[in-house]
Amino acid sequence: MANKESFFISLGGMTQALKAERLLAEKGIECTVSKRSEPSGCVWGVYVKGEARVSVVSLLRANGIGGI
């Protein structure tokens, strides 16, 4: 069973982050749109709590969000 954790998924721009938030909310997954610094500069993404990272990433990828 995958570990449930709190983690940030980098999605690039605000639009992708908001799109991800909308999708995750529809699936009942709690998340917050937030921004953090990366070597290239700021990046928008979602901070997810209490879920398995791999399943959230798979869900976003299946819906073509963030190019991940």
């Binding site: 690039g12 721009g13 700021c42 928008w44 963030g66």
Partner: peptide
């Protein structure tokens, strides 16, 4: 400016930014 990837010399790859 786009608010993201500010250290990159070019515009971000993602749309719409």
């Amino acid at each position: 400016g786009t608010g993201i990837a500010s250290r990159e010399k070019g515009m971000p790859d993602g749309y719409p930014e």
